[in-house]
Amino acid sequence: MNKTTVSLAIALALAVPFGAHAGKTLDSIKQKGQVACGVHTGLSGFSQADSQGNWDGIDVDYCKALAAAVLGDASKVKYVPLTAAQRFTALQSGEIDILSRNTTWTLTRDASLGLNFIGTVYYDGQGFLVPAKSKVKSAKAMKGATVCVQSGTTTEKNLTDYSRANKLDMKPVVFEKIEAATGAYFSGRCAAFTTDASGLASVRNKEAKNPADHVILPELISKEPLGPAVRRGDDEWFAIAKWVLFGLIEAEEYDITQANVEKLAAESTDPVVMRITGKSEDTGKLLGLDKDWMVKAVKAVGNYGEMFERNVGPKTPLNLPRGLNNQWNKGGLQYAPPIR
């Protein structure tokens, strides 16, 4: 347990009780002039701060797009770095407006934590990272192995399930901070480190002395749809957060990019593009936003495909294939309901 969790619990105890607060989040964001966005403390490709304190990553880009759509300025985001254990309490207590921190969408979380997941930014699965010199080719060969894992995530349970199902009797060593877990793995305390495959790629790329010395095993042992979540009880804000993500995905489907969005908004005669850019129907008004909300969002961070390529795609150090995260008409799972 750490100080922040405790203080957030105290905040929950002291906060004045309130009834329904529909629409309040958008009002308070406009009043504050910034979106408070809960992010990972440092996971390359997803969210990390550079030496100047500028944040980047696919989770961060979503927050920027949201701020651009709501406030018209992608820089008006207040980043709140959170550990896995702190994240839900931070959202529940109102410290953040949106949790965009590679969080797995599960029934328990959706139904009992007072939050709503808005969609999936990255379809992931849990995997294992092992030293290349151990010559392990499959997770099923790791009988009795110790496995380093970070607490406060779905990974502990997945590991247990997999170990039971395959009678592997793996022994977890559970750390509160991901740095401690990876540190123990790299020192050789554990035979493997486990987390979402994207996280493994990030850890291998950022923390291994020589990334080639470590192998990500082929087995993915779970489904990990990672997505942002909002607090329950504010359906208007829920809708805005959802449709900004859908809009970014649909923008890719219709080839609206950061570079051409303004030109398309001015010139395109394609009815779908005109709707997305707010040239024909005013979808923004329905959400409580400006007419050109999607133009601002795409102008800020590009469409979903551009976000992927810039942060985690094959040209980045993470080198993650598009795979499940491709558009639905290109063999992937990213399918946005239509903006109309």
Partner: peptide, 15 residues
């Protein structure tokens, strides 16, 4: 308690 807290979301109870 940390792990339980994160699996169940019962922060007040676990603390």
């Amino acid at each position: 308690a940390n792990t339980s807290l994160n699996n169940t979301g019962r922060a007040v109870e676990c603390i």
